[in-house]
Nucleic acid binder design. Structure first.
Lengths: 160, 160
DNA sequence: TATGAAAAGATAATCCC
DNA sequence: GGGATTATCTTTTCATA
């Protein structure tokens, strides 16, 4: 059974989810450890899956994707096989960054990256509506992001 | 004026947004260059902002955040100062991972990380509804992610 | 102007305490 | 967990095309 995280582990995660290009030595200094134990902790955090990976954050706007759109999708009831096809399809479409199953009126919600409106309109008809089981798409177009983060909160919020 | 990206730059971005823990040497080999030119390209991609940063992806479920929720928020018209306060507030709340201004019925859309339903209910009343200008919150609870990615598409999709 | 080989410097990874 | 060592990688330099 893996050991639970202590305050230093949390601190390491906090620093690394902001900037993982910091060297082990720098991290060690900031959390008050020497290099070897800090390196061992990072290793453990990766092995035990607390850190899922180290990735470069690419600027989507500089690459021509000016729009972020949420597509709420209504679907028919799918068989096991159709569902598998659906998953395979969305995972092969890079413009669909995320896809969640949701409660309520609609059945799925997708976050989509698009160069412009014309492209997106084409995308709805040529791609989204041709996905297995998709019968309707309602789009929520975003105008701009006030906050954009992948960071996970590392201090539990208290209500009182 | 920065030089436009060529096929090798694109390949580097593609690899690094999947795994930025690859060494320059490994990347170089995979894109068909030797280390120095590959290193210089990476440097340039960072300097010119194509790569916004290198971060650790932390597993939110392992840290107790089992729920991902979309909160659609209706707001009053804000003055410049109120708007600044709103931005400051959402940026200081780590459970709000993203916030977009949106077209349509609602005014903002937030992606929120929550440990459980009870916590989220508290969060709505103790935090969300107390944000400057917020008058209503409608929540879309996700049941599970079929796809979850930060990756930006690096090959333009063709329709025909 | 961009490349590649190689040197110098820094960091990661392993050892032992 | 810490200190010291070795292996590896990053970064700079320089010669070349």
């Amino acid at each position: 059974m893996p050991a639970p995280l202590d305050a230093i582990d949390i601190k390491i995660l906090e620093l690394m989810q902001k900037d993982a290009s910091l060297s082990t030595g720098e991290l060690a200094e900031r959390v008050g450890l020497s290099q070897s134990p800090c390196w061992r902790r990072i290793q453990r955090l990766r092995e035990e899956g607390y850190i899922k990976g180290i990735v470069a954050v690419v600027d989507h706007e500089k690459l021509g994707y000016k729009m972020q759109i949420f597509a709420q999708v209504k679907m028919t009831t799918l068989t096991e096989a159709e569902r598998a096809n659906f998953y395979k399809a969305i995972n092969s479409i890079p413009e669909i960054q995320d896809c969640w199953t949701v409660f309520g009126e609609m059945d799925a919600m997708m976050k989509i990256l698009a160069p412009d409106v014309a492209w997106y309109q084409d995308f709805i008809f040529s791609v989204l509506l041709k996905l297995p089981g998709v019968v309707d798409v309602r789009s929520i177009v975003t105008l701009g992001a006030q906050k954009s983060s992948q960071a996970v909160p590392l201090v539990a919020r208290q209500f009182r």
